[in-house]
Write a protein that binds this DNA or RNA. Structure first.
Lengths: 341, 341
DNA sequence: TGTCACTGGTGATACGTGTCACTATGGTTG
DNA sequence: CAACCATAGTGACACGTATCACCAGTGACA
């Protein structure tokens, strides 16, 4: 009752009255096979529930059909959704993905990626957590390694709309709403997304400060990790005369730390302080006050990342990204501020 | 420069001056090989960077060495951490895991699991999201399918400490603190964890109601999904004379919906209402007030789940779970309530 | 001394597939 | 009618490993 031997292509061949080679040609669609025979083979395969043995196929073709995805346990973005998108894209391209979770320092992660790349059982590697540039490659001798966190830089260099551009929109809207003093709570600068948001913030404030008629003040940039606690600490260290101030946090986890600290200091939000986050985490709509944030389509991002990887390992042109993946969600934490239009 | 053919066991054999069979025996540790020869083979393998071809091995052994993990995108627990734990356990047991993300109804998920099980390329399947019992099996003809969400039921039947028992501790502590009116906001009853928490709550209140000198009132159980919005709605529908009431939510996402609704209704927490969550989500320490919750070691849970699966497919006894994976984290949302000791 | 058990190792084979080289069969053309 | 070609299909082989059957040598023991 236990081990029913799975049917092979020879079984199918016997049943269809053809040779095993013919079955193989039918299934790969490569040889020249008459429609009648093709039909007969397909029926035979169907009838006995034949499924090609992937191990044998992969030995013959020397392609494993497997991709590795490196995930972390850091509370950044929504890796679960990215994974879902990547998983779907991989399936569409005929690949299976294998997940490898890794924490530790960026050096540890890089080490792990190199190890996986050298292992030779993956055709490509996609990482959701940052690694040192040494590990990244787009082909050649070793399998391509792509960092999903490096998008922004790629896009920036390729002239596409960078994902952090919405940071400018946020700042503009807050200026229009009358805010003059700004603070950015940055995320771990290992992440390209954190760097992009920070850089955009800095550049934007500089430019506005130069253009503006009224004096615009930046209290600078604080923080260098993704934890709510670091954001809270940064807020608690602000001088007493700080508010009113507009705090732009690099993600929602930092933003909730800001909210908490404001409450602890007796500052009202959005009265004394306004706050924005990023990522549209599920809890953000239910904090008091609810959190203005940037909604990111993580599933689409994961899907796109995987398509980029597949394109790279097939030597195809990288697919263009679809429509905008992000939009600002205005909520209570920014008070009356709204987009200019 | 492109395709350097990877070395095979024959290359190792030639280099070590032995037969290919000997190399195989050394690497699998099965034959009788002299220490000297073993050493020589290992050195040779090391020197040319030999790695066994898994496809060839798996064809020969008829074992794929691969397990599938089904994840969802539902905001329950911390699947990322569970995945990390499961990933580690699988690696320890010599298996590779392949992730497949699936959303949709429980029927869709079940369909997908059955499909993967029938595919024949996985030796076992672990699912983090609930599926219909039809799909679950622990061996026999098809590969074993184990639902990581069904733990509680297994533990309950085997007499171990059930994970929902801390619900009783929560209720007790709140009774001691003087609370007399209770409400449970339940999660999706598809999940065994949600059912367990609900059942424990109901049983506990019934028992206390019978024993107690003072009248204990349960406002019943509301909700049947994991969304903060459903919890909020449930709270908004409470009659005006409801507080003071102690609200025990099935997880932190529900709890933050409760907090939000309480604020909207003008009820203070923990003054008018006290609230507890579950899972110790990262945001829970930073809400206003911070959230009393149950800390769950998801990584250990995922690790344990994978070990159960591996034991099942090897026909071994299921490993006993280690020490307690859960503990209550008392925070502001329950005011002065503390454990009895 | 003959035999037995044991150690350390070899040669051959099968796993299931994709693909190369080749053949038989008609059909078309000179 | 001979020569050629396209079509449809076959037989054989190789991929890299694990394992079975077998063999040479060595010491122990009757």
């Amino acid at each position: 009752m236990s081990t029913a031997v799975p049917p092979t292509s020879r079984d199918v061949a016997r049943l269809a009255g053809v040779s095993q080679a013919t079955v193989s040609y039918v299934l790969t669609g490569k040889g020249s096979i008459s429609p009648a025979t093709r039909e007969r083979v397909l029926r035979a395969a169907e009838s006995i529930g034949y499924r090609p043995n992937l191990a044998a196929r992969s030995m013959r073709t020397r392609r494993s059909g497997r991709l590795a995805v490196i995930t972390g346990v850091v509370a950044v973005g929504n890796q679960m959704r990215m994974l879902a998108g990547a998983s779907r894209a991989a399936a569409e391209a005929g690949y299976a993905i294998e997940t490898s979770s890794v924490d530790g320092s960026v050096a540890d992660r890089t080490e792990r990626v190199l190890e996986l790349a050298a292992g030779g059982q993956y055709e490509g590697i996609l990482t959701f957590v940052p690694v040192l540039p040494d590990a990244l490659s787009d082909g050649g001798d070793s399998p391509p390694v792509l960092a999903a966190t490096a998008f922004d830089e790629q896009m920036r260099s390729s002239g596409e709309l960078a994902e952090a551009d919405l940071m400018e929109v946020l700042v503009h809207a807050l200026v229009v709403a009358g805010h003059r003093r700004f603070l950015h709570v940055a995320g771990s600068q290992e992440f390209a997304s954190a760097r992009a948001r920070r850089d955009t913030y800095v550049a934007c404030l500089e430019r506005l400060g130069a253009e503006s008629h009224e004096p615009l003040q930046s209290l600078g940039v604080v923080g260098n990790e993704w934890s709510a606690e670091s954001a809270r600490q940064a807020m608690l260290e602000l001088p007493d005369d700080a508010p009113p101030v507009a705090v732009l946090a690099a993600n929602d986890m930092l933003a909730i730390g800001v909210l908490r600290a404001a409450a602890e200091r007796g500052w009202t939000v959005p009265g004394d302080v306004v706050v924005t986050g990023w990522d549209n985490a599920a809890f953000g709509a239910y904090t008091m006050p609810s959190l203005t944030t940037v909604d990111v389509d993580f599933q689409a991002a994961g899907h796109h990342a995987m398509r980029l990887l597949v394109a790279a390992l097939r030597g195809e042109e990288p697919p263009a990204r679809g429509s905008a993946l992000q939009r600002i969600v205005w909520r209570e934490s920014t008070g009356a501020a709204r987009p200019p239009d």
